[in-house]
Design a protein around this nucleic acid. Structure first.
Lengths: 350, 350
DNA sequence: CGTAACTTTGACAGCGCTGCCAGTAGCGCT
DNA sequence: AGCGCTACTGGCAGCGCTGTCAAAGTTACG
């Protein structure tokens, strides 16, 4: 320990321990760092000999490029952020899945954040994600606080709002009209002869899509059955669950015994309502009909099979991913508004 | 356009357009960049006056710190990567949800990648994620290719494997024994009087947990019913779906008509099988009993309600997040092995 | 009033890459 | 041989932060 002085003199490096850098690969390959960088990103810009020397050195050192450094130098992060209300309901999980698949194929990585249907958390999540300088943002929903909208606009990156339809998207929009879907459902149940429909969903949270569904339904109903009172049920603190669907059926029977069809804002509710009706010894649709929304796999297998609306869950994610990739490649291209529509699936439950 | 010369002379900046930097905030606040950095990360290191000047400047400029630069300078990325087989099945979505909640509360952001139950894609995903230098990695499963294991070890970051149980985890482990769960199920169905069980699941893919479930079941069966032949059904290319569960029931009836209980590797299959049995006019469990795995919400609402095994989906994610955070804070702390167990839920279907 | 200890601040280098530029080598042509 | 090309390569600065150090200011105390 006689060389304490020298050790002190050498300023301690802040380098990450044990991590191979591009410079070390370059030294081993006998080329300059620039050449290594080129070989790794655009092999055709480099001679075959250099390419192979680099690849050998990469393999030998197990080099993995540091994307944070690359991001800083090139001002492209190679990431996209997705902000969802929740992941536990399969509809959004399907959308994330489609999105992830498209992005991963392009070498873009996906950040995920959940807001729990809370506008404040949405704002926090957006702010946190913008710190990562994603190349694009995908959001579920087109209703945001003014501050959130402002942040997204100022970020000057492609934004895709999904699962919704609006006249003034922040940037691009991929979805369908929840209101139109429930207008279609209203028309269907009325044409099927039902005269006393009750709408049921979760309307307490900041889930604007649920409100659009209700409005689409009740507006149509006022037109189709002008003399009929409007009946709406809210699961409130029960949130979104099959059990809440069971509660909705009980509640409809208790508060609105004239109900002949329970129009649910989600198959989650409809399934719970259907099973509860059967548990109570009622026959669906003879005693009470039930409709859903979302067309989950199980919905078609139940007895009676659920009348519902099929939504393009996976396609929304894929299309959103494609749009982000297009706009990253050509930032001046136009924003996209894609209505992927919905399909009413009449089955046995109504 | 007479100043072409001067314009040429000025080397074009590579700065991101329109993005506020820490230096600009410092200039506006009238303090040094160091002080801004400190104010934003450890307010207590800075005088009250400086803190407030910084905060005013931040608000005025809408400054959002660039985490890539912070990452590069501090060698901590503030991210965790999660690698899942799939997101479309609620069990993993629940785990992601629990994980995201814990991490987001600590200001850590979550990268998500899906492998589609494919070992090669798992390797590619790990490699891609390591380029982001996450502070930790959460994986579903404890069975990986040698190369994947090697990469994870070399990364020298906390790794949590989940949803599995093994004697030699890479680092930490949070899950339960899939084999033990199906040993318990075997004991249950035998003690309930069933003598001709058939195991059913998806065994074609790289889903090692499915294999462990089968082995746990068949091993126990050989012990409990030594004279009984072993019956196993594989959905093959049908994968994991309720429809495949229906096929499993048909197949069991056709190929193994002696089957008195169909033991499914997932509630997805069990639900499909149950509904198919009813569609065929069979009574469950009298004509054929059915058991599942996972205890989805719907499983308890079906008629008959599914006998199944409850798994700690959400807790696995939360605990994994906690472990990662602990180990980021104290890198020398010991790795953790947490068996979160499972609960057999006897109901009406068996 | 002087000294020691603490608090607060700023300067500076550097994290690991990429964009830009200039330079060299090799080629076909006049 | 000399010219203009193209193909390939290396040098350099800098992306936007943070860690480290040293200096300045402030307080406590004998």
């Amino acid at each position: 320990m006689t060389d304490t002085e020298e050790v002190r003199a050498a300023r301690p490096t802040r380098r990450a321990t044990q991590t191979v850098t591009l410079d070390e690969v370059a030294a081993l390959a006998g080329v300059s760092p620039s050449t290594v960088s080129r070989a790794l990103r655009n092999a055709e810009q480099v001679s075959e000999a250099a390419y192979e020397a680099v690849m050998r050195a990469v393999a030998e050192t197990n080099y993995v490029p540091n994307r944070a450094a690359s991001h800083l130098a090139s001002n492209r992060s190679g990431t996209v952020a997705a902000i969802m209300p929740a992941m536990s309901y399969s509809v959004f999980a399907d959308t994330v899945h489609g999105l992830e698949e498209v992005l991963a194929a392009a070498g873009v990585q996906l950040f995920i954040g959940a807001t729990g249907y809370d506008a404040v958390r949405e704002e926090q999540t957006i702010r946190a994600f913008l710190g990562r300088r994603p190349d694009g943002i995908v959001m579920v929903g087109a209703t945001h606080t003014a501050a959130a909208r402002e942040m997204l606009l100022r970020a000057r990156i492609p934004v895709v709002e999904t699962w919704d339809w609006t006249a003034d998207p922040i940037d691009s929009l991929v979805g369908f009209s929840n209101g139109a879907a429930f207008t279609a459902m209203a028309e269907f149940v009325v044409s099927a002869g039902y005269r006393h429909p009750t709408f049921a969903g979760w309307l307490t949270g900041a889930d604007s899509r649920a409100h659009e569904r209700r409005d689409g339904f009740t507006d149509a109903l006022r037109r189709l059955l002008p003399d009929e009172p409007i009946r709406v049920l809210d699961t409130g603190a029960r949130g979104i669950s099959a059990d809440a669907g069971g509660w909705l059926l009980d509640e409809a029977l208790a508060r609105f015994p004239e109900t002949d069809v329970l129009v649910c804002a989600s198959d989650v509710f409809a399934t719970g309502a259907l099973l509860r009706a059967q548990a109570r010894g009622l026959t669906v649709p003879a005693d009470i009909a039930v409709t859903g929304f979302g067309d989950f796999e199980l919905s078609g297998l139940l007895h009676p099979a659920l009348t519902t609306i099929q939504t393009p869950n996976d396609s929304i994610g894929r299309r959103a991913g494609e749009i982000i990739l297009e706009r990253i490649a050509a930032p001046d291209s136009d924003s996209v508004r894609a209505d992927l529509g919905f399909t009413l699936v009449p089955r046995e439950s109504a």
